[in-house]
């Protein structure tokens, strides 16, 4: 926790054995290319569809836009998937579930934040029950803005993810995508990164592990370190 996993290159378990054997550099590069080709062209998608964007995800999977033609297939269980599409608003009641499902997915895995609600909370970013962006509790690779984004925008997001997978496999440095912000207030929880208070990570992990127990964690005497409230940046948004 607390480490920005999206910037780490995934290494195959056979890597260290291959490195010891002489003359396998070439084979290794070739194998990496094959693995990269495979993983970017057969993405198993877990649609974390909560609201409106889920309907557009369904539309994208249907005949007109046909998400399947770039090699994706939607599965109902996180254990078989390697791309999570967070489509819709995530509330504080839903957030532990999303985190748990994300932790269930096997490595290597990627996340796409689809729609303004998943990116920043959008209309609801000030509301007491809405998480202002899923990147406050899990890493996000690709942001697809829109309310909801058109299915072709989602396709373009998948294309960007494919480029990212390819570059990472080749060992290139990939600039992490930044949250598209336009004159909005930043959320009260700082996003996943270095400027983040580790108390949030610890508490989110504990909340995920103790999911379903309600307030028993706090009742048992476990005190969580409360981070100091962040000074809200003066944006132009105000309480629009």
């Amino acid at each position: 926790m607390g480490v920005d996993q999206s910037n780490q290159n995934f290494e195959h378990p056979l890597f260290e054995y291959m490195e010891k054997m002489p003359g396998l550099d070439l084979a290794m590069t070739t194998a990496d290319k094959i693995l990269s080709w495979g993983s970017r062209n057969s993405m198993f998608v877990f649609p974390m569809a909560t609201s409106c964007c889920g309907i557009e995800f369904m539309a994208a999977a249907c005949g007109r836009f046909d998400l399947d033609r770039i090699g994706t297939i939607a599965r109902g269980t996180p254990r078989q998937c390697d791309v999570m599409v967070i489509a819709g608003t995530i509330t504080v009641k839903m957030a532990p579930r999303v985190k748990k499902l994300w932790d269930m997915m096997p490595e290597p895995k990627w996340a796409i934040a689809m729609g303004s609600c998943a990116i920043s909370g959008d209309f609801y970013r000030d509301i007491y029950s809405v998480v202002p962006g899923v990147d406050t509790f899990m890493p996000v690779d690709v942001y697809v803005p829109g309310c909801p984004p058109n299915p072709d925008h989602l396709l373009e997001g998948f294309r960007r993810l494919q480029d990212k997978i390819k570059a990472k496999r080749a060992g290139e440095w990939v600039e992490p995508e930044t949250r598209p912000v336009s004159g909005m207030q930043m959320p009260s929880v700082p996003r996943y990164g270095t400027d983040r208070d580790p108390a949030y990570d610890q508490a989110q992990l504990m909340a995920t592990q103790n999911m379903g127990l309600g307030g028993e964690l706090l009742a048992a005497g476990v005190t969580l370190p409360q981070p100091a409230p962040q000074p809200v940046q003066s944006g132009e948004g105000g309480d629009s």
Binding site: V92, A95, P96, D126, I127, Y128, S129, V130, V131, P132, T136, F137, P187, S188, V189, A199, Y200, A203, Q204, A207, L224, Q226, P227, P229, D239
Partner: peptide
Amino acid sequence: HPLRRDYAIDTSHFPWR
């Protein structure tokens, strides 16, 4: 109770917002 008039709309909720 969130819909009372004296409840602030942007009440924070540790650790999720």
